[in-house]
Design a protein around this nucleic acid. Sequence first.
RNA 1: GCGGAUAUGGCGGAACUGGCAGACGCGCUAGACUUAGGAUCUAGUGGGAGACCGUGCAGGUUCGAUUCCUGUUAUCCGCACCA
Length: 802
Amino acid sequence: MAIPYNYKEIEKRWRKNWEQNPINVDDGKKPKYYCLDMFPYPSGSGLHVGHWRGYVISDAWSRYKILNGYYIIHPMGWDAFGLPAENYAIKMGVHPSVSTAENVANIKEQIKEIAAIYDWDMEVNTTDPDFYKWTQWIFVKMFKAGLAYEKEMPINWCPSCKTGLANEEVVNGSCERCGETVTKKNLKQWMLRITKYADRLLDDLDKLDWPEKVKKMQAEWIGRSYGAEIDFAIKDSDKAIKVYTTRPDTLYGATFMVLAPEHVLAKEITTDEQRNAVEEYINKASTKSTVDRLQDKEKTGVFTGSYAINPLNNELIPIWISDYVLVDYGTGAIMCVPAHDDRDFAFATKFEIPIVQVISKDGKENPELTEAYTEPGIMINSGEWNGMDSEQAKAEVPDMLEKQGIGQKTINYKLRDWVFSRQRYWGEPIPIVHCDHCGPVPVPEEELPLLLPEVEKYQPTGTGESPLADIHDWVNTTCPQCGAPAKRETNTMPQWAGSSWYFLRYVDSKNDKELISKEKAEKYLPVDMYIGGVEHAVLHLLYSRFYTKFLNDIGVVDFDEPFLKLFNQGMIGKDGAKMSKSKGNVVSPDELVRDYGCDALRLYELFVGPPELDSEWDDRGIDGVYRFINRFYNLVMENKDKLTQETAETIKLRNKLVYDITTRLNAFSLNTVVSGFMEYNNKMLDIVKKEGGIDKETLETAIILLSPFAPHIGEELWHVMGNETSVFENTWPTYDEDKMKDDEIEIAIQINGKTKGTIMISAESSKEEAISLAKEAMADKLTGNIIKEIYVPRKIVNVVMK
RNA sequence: GCGGAUAUGGCGGAACUGGCAGACGCGCUAGACUUAGGAUCUAGUGGGAGACCGUGCAGGUUCGAUUCCUGUUAUCCGCACCA
């Protein structure tokens, strides 16, 4: 008769016990392992089973590391500043600090149901003044290092969120948060000079054990390119135009030039005949939204009437204006080689501009060029470069131009400086005072934190001013430097400010003297394993790397990469869609925990599919792991008092079990870890049925192996077996390959590569023995001439007949 | 357009360096125990009556291909006029 597995009572009991007797203790001798979850933004809608999955993966991994003798740093905190929290508060009509606190409390309760080994003493909250004191402190340090600066420029502006956005927050021309089309707005902004770190951010990717996809996305976002800047004189003018090109080898083929509509010389070089057309075009371009500009693949443009002089052959080339050239990349002007660039080809074809081929596959001109030739080849029509290999020319030309004084080698990046100001209330105040005499002056470090003032109206103003600008007795202050009346900066920081460094603070969260002590930074950091969704591939992960490198530069930490290993778990969807409140397909873990228990849900979260891939949630699937748990529980309960001696068979089974679970776990194949437990449970049941019982060692091994995944059952059954200490005080079991070997093995027999049957042979059988046994077994089918016999040891015999 | 991932029964998914495709689970079918079962247990479950056929599609390499190569299609994700 089955003994009901009372998960409610068992889970409650062990939860309490672990609170009193923690299983993850820093004794100062164990090596550390820092396993970090991406901390959540405390939304009002709570957790769904997709969030759970990431936390279960990291917890199972952490507990596995505990069993391998590590002290685990496994903290949790709250990314509670930012737009979503503020928008939610506005919608609900409560102050963001109130709703945020409520949401944190709710989600914390939900997270506790996972029974993860989070160390709540380390908990941080980005909205806590003791925390954001250091967020502000980092900003002051950056300001002093010249990395934070003010600039008035047209920035991305979300009309719905009523704030400026970083480039990274604009997705396909829309706001990353709300989807509203982003416009441009001219605003004075605080910027962070992340571009100064571009090379290090790019080159150090090689050091990281991260998914290639994420590294590639960051590399492309940084977008380093090597090329040259070349000066073109303008005919009948003392002005010159500098262009940037990655293909200086094609300079002889430049037949026109294009300026961005916003280029400073665009109007200046326009001739009187062309003035009306040019001004009309520039005006039109300025009103075009980013989206339109990106979507219009059809080239438009207007001729300025002026000509530039090709510095190599003194040929005149017309200067055009077109919005396919971006003002903020390179020099905002390009030389165009239609024969060897798709975009230039399209433009030249449309406006009937001559096309000159300078690279050819075979050294001859292509009489019917229908598209740009962008491959390498042999230089033609290029004066002294004729006959050169184009790749060689590409490498050598920049030096030659430099020697001739008409250009210089240049490196360009797509990465832009980080727009850091937000015109919203719910964020860290930027700790700067604007003084008429001294300019921007940082708030003295000893006066931090600069508290976010209470305010009646925290709705965004939409004017480009933060709601803080209305609080006059806060805004009006004195200059920390000269004492004269001065005004505070009223913009706040973006949500990314706190999340860029929070992982440092966990291990020293109560330190009021330093961001983190040197000793603790050295002892507990960096993060060994970082687990979370792929949606932060460029945003949070790039910013965190930048912050870490800066903090390394100023001596706060002794490492320059925060996250050594990164794992992106797949998303969980339902009904073919991403889980979201608006789609109404959210599955809450709460009911599942109630109806099946924490361990069952933990196992099912892992079993649902490969952790790195997206998975479809099926509520019925959890029944399978629930049945497994009950069967395993009963296996132990029914056999604990009639344990048998181990046999050759159980020794083999046990070693194979350890081998399979360990290798699958190390490969992060967590779904097959769970299926492995089910498989071996069935095998153990078979042994019990056959032998009338099973040995202690095998049962206990299975219990230890299972405990990282289903900790309550692991702990319960470990004690049921008569043990007094925690199951997590064990060492992860090892296996002996010699003991996994079978004496008799089953091999397949193929005829002409097609499987016809199987036979059992001794594992020691020679090739000749195996083949002759196989032929004997297949005698009736071996009617033709045997031309080849293949034996793959322990696997297969293949007889090839004609 | 460029780059990446994925494609296997009714469903989720297994298959280590090429070697018995479909482990494990869901669902389904039949049976047992039951007043009852949406509980539990037992057996079965890719297709086909069969020889055989089957891993998106078309080729190739090989004694042998889900696995390697070439081409192609679909879905998802990222980037997208960066010169």
